Amino acid sequence: MNKDAKIYIAGHKGMVGSAIWRSLSAKGYQNLIGSTSKELDLREQQDVRDYMAQEKPDVIIDAAAKVGGILANNNFPYQFLMENMQIQNNLIDAALKTNVEKFIFLGSSCIYPKFAPQPLKEDYLLTDSLEPTNEWYAIAKIAGVKACQSIRKQFDKDYVSLMPTNLYGTHDNFDLNSSHVLPAMIRKFHEAKENGQTPVTLWGSGTPMREFLFVDDMADAVVFALENRLPDYLYNIGTGKDLTIKDLAETIAKIVGHTGEIIWDSEKPDGTPRKLMDVSKMHDLGWKHQIELEQGIEKTYKWFTENINDVKKVTI
């Protein structure tokens, strides 16, 4: 990939998009472009078409999405389905119509069936029913994967989909009404510590197993996909290692310094029992994660405390 290539990063201000921007900049890519939601509403088809026709990027990286945890997915199913389809479909279609040769689509491990064999292989897509608590987001992302696959098949363009496991890291969302489990735990344990080591109540039983990938590793995977023409249309991105939510909570509590009680609210849903990614396809091509979980949590907590007054929707 030419270092002068014009690369549009959708969602460049978010956790994933900003990490991709930093990674590309560090590798010498200078011609990076992005747009805030105020500058360009990706849900508006004609606006996206006009923008791409004017800017004419060589590459589009789609890191834009409406995201959230179980609570947000349950409360806003229509928005999670429709807005994600609007965003990705507008970008993919505009890319095709403006002859963008390379498109990298980012999804989520939730595209795979709820009770698929573990670890999750790319071949398990559409083999069974989804997890009900996030099926709206999953269906949208599956549509994006299939759109890119169809363009790859019909027009022979280098459109590829990367499905990350649970991502976390600097610039994450720490709003307790919409955040994912790991940043929510960081905030809860921090506030409990600041309030005199008060008890922390967490959702579910603590028994589900989850895999977590530091966002800088995800960004490196995107750069890898950018600089190589991957032979297939779909790749899992993760560590290939998981742990129970209970173990995650204890790890975060230790790093944060919370010594109070942890209470599990078993009346709340657990979600999928396990979501471990099979990342052998990416490993075989030469990509592997570099940052282990404890190191990543330490980096994230350090960033959280340093930016606590600036992080959106975080009030202590």
Score class of each variant (00 low, 15 high):
residue 1 M to K: 04
residue 3 K to S: 11
residue 3 K to A: 06
residue 4 D to H: 10
residue 7 I to G: 02
residue 15 M to Q: 15
residue 16 V to Y: 03
residue 18 S to C: 07
residue 23 S to T: 14
residue 23 S to M: 05
residue 28 G to L: 05
residue 34 G to I: 09
residue 41 D to Y: 08
residue 43 R to S: 11
residue 43 R to G: 00
residue 48 V to G: 09
residue 48 V to I: 10
residue 51 Y to V: 04
residue 54 Q to L: 11
residue 56 K to W: 06
residue 57 P to H: 03
residue 63 A to I: 06
residue 65 A to C: 14
residue 68 G to L: 11
residue 69 G to Y: 08
residue 74 N to W: 05
residue 80 F to D: 01
residue 80 F to L: 12
residue 92 I to W: 05
residue 100 V to T: 03
residue 100 V to Q: 02
residue 101 E to S: 14
residue 102 K to P: 01
residue 102 K to H: 12
residue 108 S to C: 13
residue 109 S to C: 08
residue 112 Y to V: 08
residue 113 P to W: 05
residue 116 A to W: 01
residue 117 P to E: 12
residue 124 Y to W: 09
residue 124 Y to R: 13
residue 128 D to P: 01
residue 128 D to K: 04
residue 133 T to I: 12
residue 134 N to Y: 13
residue 135 E to D: 10
residue 138 A to H: 07
residue 139 I to G: 06
residue 140 A to C: 09
residue 143 A to H: 08
residue 144 G to S: 03
residue 144 G to F: 04
residue 146 K to W: 04
residue 149 Q to P: 02
residue 150 S to F: 06
residue 151 I to Q: 06
residue 152 R to F: 05
residue 155 F to I: 04
residue 159 Y to N: 00
residue 162 L to A: 07
residue 165 T to D: 07
residue 165 T to F: 00
residue 171 H to I: 00
residue 171 H to V: 02
residue 179 S to D: 01
residue 179 S to K: 04
residue 183 P to D: 11
residue 190 H to G: 04
residue 191 E to F: 10
residue 193 K to Q: 03
residue 193 K to N: 10
residue 205 S to C: 04
residue 207 T to N: 14
residue 210 R to W: 03
residue 213 L to C: 07
residue 213 L to S: 07
residue 214 F to Q: 00
residue 216 D to N: 11
residue 219 A to I: 06
residue 222 V to D: 05
residue 222 V to K: 09
residue 226 L to D: 00
residue 229 R to W: 07
residue 231 P to N: 10
residue 236 N to M: 04
residue 239 T to W: 00
residue 240 G to C: 10
residue 242 D to P: 01
residue 243 L to W: 10
residue 245 I to C: 04
residue 245 I to K: 10
residue 246 K to V: 03
residue 248 L to H: 06
residue 250 E to V: 05
residue 250 E to M: 08
residue 251 T to D: 02
residue 254 K to L: 02
residue 257 G to F: 01
residue 262 I to W: 11
residue 263 I to T: 09
residue 267 E to S: 15
residue 269 P to Q: 01
residue 271 G to M: 05
residue 272 T to I: 12
residue 273 P to K: 13
residue 273 P to I: 11
residue 292 E to T: 14
residue 292 E to H: 14
residue 294 E to V: 13
residue 294 E to D: 02
residue 295 Q to T: 15
residue 295 Q to N: 15
residue 295 Q to A: 15
residue 296 G to I: 09
residue 296 G to E: 13
residue 298 E to K: 15
residue 300 T to A: 03
residue 302 K to Y: 06
residue 302 K to M: 03
residue 305 T to Y: 03
residue 309 N to E: 12
residue 309 N to G: 15
residue 311 V to G: 01
